[in-house]
Structures are given as structure tokens and as C-alpha cells.
């Protein structure tokens, strides 16, 4: 069994120029990182910082220009094909008009492994039921997929991501558009899955709360890795470097404290998102009532 779930060695990647006058866009430069098996890594960085590119590289959807990546001791593409990687995409693009139940939606990727001549795959349905039980959705298994709320749909998609019993789960911006209470529930769910399945989890986000609530280690990414350590080592100065803003100067009155965020279980005490911290001008004064209504 490999020691590291993911190992990146001096990985660089640039998107090719679109037009004759354009230059290639360097998305990642000289990234080296090792994610131990069974750990929880949070990748924090601004929009355009290379987080989605990192996800695509780990999933084997693109190849690095230089350097190498191994996922669970093999190539990312091989790990993906063997069902070793579970993935929750940033935007859920499923056709919700589809006339299928939640169970059928969760079982779909599993059913791909069934024999071509087998009309119904009961093993896939059983595995789907187990995954739905893990995310607390057993009672909704027969409900049409289009009848779920946003939060329920996200849980169903997590159930689908873990249905193949992957050993690595990649979550891409999982809490975008989710209120503080929802983020708290999401963190609880991920921690539960980590405890029960012993799975390696990589959460990619621009949101400090999403990262701090459920990560053993944090990697700050802005084209290159600026920090890779326990969340307690994260300081406003590092955030400022990654997000290219003086975070303390902008949000000092809100008492941003990554240390506190890492230990805090109360969603109403969570700091603002790093996108807010990056000084987009949408300063959100920390008002629990307002967040509760969000």
C-alpha cells in the first residue's frame, strides 16, 4: 500500500494560447506536495490561482507539462479508471428532469462495471443504498432526483462519489453558495465519512471556513504552493501573500484568526471567506442573524 495518496513532484502546467496573439497561461509552477494516505488536505487559494487545474491533474483529465504525479501508487488516469478517486464537482450539472430516483442516480457509475448483458445490477443498487445511508439519505432513496433540495442534492452527489468506495475523495469548492449552518453540516458529514471510511480527502476552496473546518493540513496555492502545513500555522500574512491583499488591514476589525477558525465548531464564529478577505469590497460584517437568513 502506498504511503501517499497523492504525490506531486515539481509539477508545472500552462494552458496553451487560444489565439495567435495570446500567450500560454501558466496555471501552476513547480508544485511539489505529498498527501499521506488517510489524511485530509485543504487547498486554499484565490480564483484563478490554479486550484481547478490541480484538481484536473489529480483526476488525470490533463497531463502536467513538466514533473510527475502519482495517485495511490499509479498514474492519475489509471486511478480514475479503477474507481480509486471519488469526485464532487464545483457545479452540479446533472439534468434534474431525468426520470430516475436518487438510488438510481447514485448507482449509475457503479452500474458501468456490470456485465453488458445484465439488465439490472442489484450489487450496484445495494452499494448505492449503503452510500446513501452513510450520508443520511436512506429515507430519500426512492425520491425522484429532481425533487431534492440543494443541500440534499449535494449529499446525494457525495453518496455517488463514494459509491465506488474510492480511496481518495476530491471535493471542488463544495461550499460555494452554502450558508454558514450548511457549511457546518457539510463539515460534519465529511468528518464522519473520513472517520468511517478512513478515506483521504482533498478539499479545494477559496473559502477559509470550508478548509479550516475539516483539514489536517492546508496548502495555500496561487500558481505555486505558498504554505503547506497544519491549519494552526496559517497566519494573516500568509493569506495576504496568497490572496495578494493585506488581509489584516482590510478585515482586522473582524478578528480574522485562522487558529481560531481551525478549532472553532460554532458556525456563527467563523471568519469571512477568503474571497471576502481578498478585498472584493463585499465586506460582510459578521451578523449571525443575517447568516441565518442567507
Amino acid at each position: 500500500m502506498p504511503e501517499h495518496a497523492v504525490q506531486l513532484d515539481r509539477v508545472s502546467f500552462a494552458y496553451p494560447a487560444r489565439g495567435l496573439r495570446d500567450q500560454p497561461v501558466q496555471a501552476l509552477r513547480d508544485i511539489s506536495m505529498a498527501v499521506p494516505v488517510g489524511s485530509r488536505l485543504g487547498v486554499l487559494g484565490p480564483n484563478g490561482g490554479g486550484k481547478s487545474t490541480l484538481v484536473k491533474l489529480i483526476l488525470g483529465l490533463i497531463e502536467p507539462d513538466t514533473g510527475s504525479i502519482t495517485v495511490l501508487g499509479t498514474t492519475p488516469a489509471d486511478a480514475r479508471r479503477r474507481g480509486l478517486i471519488g469526485y464532487l464537482p464545483q457545479r452540479l450539472t446533472a439534468e434534474l428532469d431525468f426520470p430516475i430516483s436518487v438510488r438510481q442516480a447514485v448507482a449509475m457509475p457503479l452500474a458501468l462495471r456490470a456485465g453488458r448483458f445484465r439488465l439490472r445490477d442489484r450489487a450496484a443498487e445495494t452499494a448505492a443504498d449503503e452510500s446513501l445511508a452513510l450520508v443520511g439519505m436512506t429515507d430519500l432513496a426512492n425520491r425522484p432526483i429532481g425533487a431534492l433540495s440543494g443541500g440534499q442534492l449535494q449529499r446525494a452527489m457525495i453518496a455517488r462519489a463514494i459509491a465506488t468506495r474510492p480511496r481518495l475523495l476530491v471535493l471542488d469548492e463544495p461550499t460555494v453558495g452554502v450558508d454558514a449552518a450548511g457549511q457546518h453540516r457539510f463539515a460534519d458529514l465529511i468528518n464522519k465519512l473520513h472517520a468511517e471510511l478512513g478515506i483521504t480527502i482533498i478539499t479545494v476552496s477559496h473559502d477559509l471556513r470550508a478548509i479550516a473546518a475539516g483539514s489536517d493540513r492546508v496548502a495555500c496555492l496561487h500558481r505555486s504552493v505558498h504554505f503547506h502545513d497544519a491549519p494552526s500555522g496559517l497566519t494573516p500574512a500568509i493569506l495576504a501573500e496568497v490572496f495578494a491583499h493585506d488581509v489584516q488591514a482590510v478585515f482586522g476589525h473582524l478578528h480574522i484568526d485562522a487558529h481560531a477558525a481551525a478549532d472553532c465548531d460554532d458556525p456563527t464564529h467563523a471568519p469571512p471567506t477568503t474571497e471576502q478577505a481578498a478585498g472584493s469590497g463585499c465586506c460582510n460584517h459578521h451578523d449571525p442573524k443575517k447568516e441565518g437568513n442567507a
Partner: peptide
Amino acid sequence: FWFRRPLVLWAFDEQACAPAGL
């Protein structure tokens, strides 16, 4: 008949195909 499962998964959620190895 041969491609029914990949086709249905693709029609339901294109984004889920690549992680499923398709």
C-alpha cells in the same frame, strides 16, 4: 444496447463521466 449505460450516464450528468473512467 451495448453502450446504454455510458449513454444514460452521459445524458444525465456529463460531468460524472470522466471521474467514472469514461
